[in-house]
Every structure is written in structure tokens, then in C-alpha cells.
Design a binder for these strands. Structure first.
Length: 273
DNA sequence: ATTGAGACCTGTCGGC
DNA sequence: TGCCGACAGGTCTCAA
């Protein structure tokens, strides 16, 4: 479920529950997710007010009055359920791992069957020097991310372009679905070398402009769809559509699937070069 | 230094 | 119905 657009939709949904609300209780129902919960996890959360709640790449960050930041990642199967006061209480699922009770009465439950998600608490200096967070590339929807930035990051790389798009240090937040989708919009082959979108000096070539535009477009549209609540997920152009006709008008190709970096890539060999 | 494969863990789906 | 393998939207680590 969660790439950048899905995580952004979660942030939007949780924001009214979290921002400027106090955490009255936290129930942690197992010792770990992908990693163990940090020491005194509950004690460091209870009584704290969430000052700022934001997203960075696929991470959710809740900064508390204590100045510590609660960092959350949904992994492959993580998600939140929100119950507002007056809602019928839901049964506890065996994969409900953390339950936040907020001062507003909202109950926010983190559920994650595969437990690839994570939750930790970082001090300001731990946050600033965090090996993963500080190595993240630009936010794709920010002005920091443009053809020049993408070309610079891809310069000289021989790795396939699709694999490069999954590298969170090049651009932060794309995952397996939207990488395939953006490449289709940009009409670029997932197999071409990442470095081929840049000159030897790291200046953008024409495909770099198309690709940055495509990434922004695909993510923006997905967020809009998810936020509208009328759709559970966005309709995909190529992802999981092996054998179907290419949706590009007049193309007539058939979508193929192949493995890159042990993940499935979907693309149209006819119009993606 | 990059890069690919495998590991982490559970659920679902298709085939027999 | 049951069993089995393949696969799933993310990272991390290890070996080449």
C-alpha cells in the first residue's frame, strides 16, 4: 500500500487527530516491528503534545513538546485506523500493534500484518544525524527536485533507470508502482542506464526534464485521488497490467513485466525508450 | 563503490 | 477442502 502518495494520504487523515493534541495513552502490544521499540517508548510519549506532524519521503514525523520526534514507517503492509469519539469501538485485530489515545478522544491504531513497519523516537540531534533520514534525496514535489537535481544524482550511474528511481537517496518517496508509472508517462525505458539522462558533466539531457515532470505529475494525481476518498487506490497505467494494451493513444503495444533488482517492473516496450 | 540476491513476515491467490 | 508455490506497494545486510 504505502508509497509517497499513500503516506501523504495517511498524514492528511491523521493530522487533525495529532497536531496540537496530547497523547494520553499508548498501548504497545508487542516488543518490536521491523526493529525493537526504543527504550521507555511509552513513557516518552504519554503526556506529550504533537507540535508538528509532517511527512518526509515515506516517513511520518511527529515532533513533540519534549522536542523528541516520533518517526513512523508503514513498511509494506502498515496502516492506521482512526476512531473518533462516538464511533463504535472496533475489535482489536491481531496485527494491531500500537494504539494511541489522544486527548481529543480519538483513538489511532497502527496495524501492520507483515511488520516491516517501524516506529522510533529520536532526539533533535539523533534526527539531524540519522543515517537513513539524512541520506534521503529531495522531496519529489518540492522545488528542490528538478531536472538538474535528478541528472546530477544519476550522472555516471550504470544501474537501470527504474532501479535508480527506487533509490531513496536519488529521489525520496517513489516505490515500485509509481516508478513504473512515471517511466511510462515519460516514455522512458526502465532498462536504460540511469546515467543516460545526464551528460558526462551531469547536466540534464532532454529525458531528465520529461522524467521529473512525469514523477511530479504521477504523484500529484495519485495524492489528489487518494485525498478525494472516492477511490481506495489510483488506477494504474502499467502496474500489474502485464499483457494488456498500452494505454498511450495510438501506441498499440502490449505491457510487459520483467524483474529488475528482484522487483517486478511493468512497461510498454513499444513506446518507452 | 556499486549491485544483486536474499532476508525479514504474513496474507492472498491460483493451480492441482 | 487442502496443500503448495509464487507473489506482494519497503528496507536492510551481506557477499561478490
Amino acid at each position: 500500500m504505502p508509497e509517497l502518495p499513500e503516506v501523504e494520504a495517511v498524514r492528511l487523515e491523521l493530522d487533525p487527530c495529532f497536531t496540537r493534541s496530547r497523547i494520553d495513552d499508548v498501548e504497545v502490544r508487542r516488543p518490536d516491528l521491523r526493529d525493537p521499540f526504543p527504550r521507555r517508548f511509552r513513557a516518552r510519549l504519554v503526556g506529550q503534545t504533537v507540535e508538528v506532524f509532517r511527512r518526509r519521503a515515506k516517513y511520518l514525523l511527529a515532533t513533540l513538546t519534549s522536542e523528541e520526534t516520533l518517526v513512523m514507517h508503514l513498511g509494506m503492509s502498515g496502516g492506521f485506523n482512526v476512531s473518533l469519539p462516538g464511533d463504535r469501538a472496533r475489535d482489536v485485530d491481531k496485527h494491531d500493534h500500537v494504539i494511541f489515545t489522544m486527548s481529543s478522544g480519538a483513538v489511532v491504531v497502527f496495524n501492520d500484518p507483515r511488520r516491516f513497519g517501524m516506529m522510533t523516537l529520536l532526539t533533535p540531534r539523533q534526527l539531524a544525524s540519522h543515517p537513513v533520514l539524512s541520506a534521503l534525496g529531495p522531496e519529489p514535489l518540492s522545488d528542490d527536485f528538478d531536472a538538474a537535481a535528478l541528472a546530477r544524482a544519476c550522472r555516471g550511474r550504470n544501474t537501470p533507470l527504474k532501479v535508480a528511481l527506487l533509490d531513496q537517496g536519488i529521489v525520496a518517496g517513489l516505490g515500485n508502482i509509481y516508478a513504473s508509472e512515471a517511466l511510462h508517462v515519460a516514455r522512458l525505458s526502465p532498462m536504460r542506464a540511469a546515467g543516460s539522462i545526464a551528460t558526462a558533466a551531469g547536466e540534464p539531457r532532454e529525458p531528465a526534464y520529461r522524467l521529473t515532470g512525469a514523477i511530479k505529475e504521477v504523484l500529484t494525481r495519485a495524492i489528489a485521488r487518494l485525498a478525494s476518498k472516492r477511490y481506495r487506490s489510483a488506477p494504474f497505467r502499467v502496474y500489474d497490467r502485464e499483457g494488456e494494451p498500452c494505454p498511450r493513444r495510438g501506441c498499440g503495444g502490449a505491457i510487459r513485466r520483467r524483474t529488475q533488482g528482484s522487483r517486478s517492473t511493468f512497461y510498454c516496450p513499444r513506446c518507452q525508450r
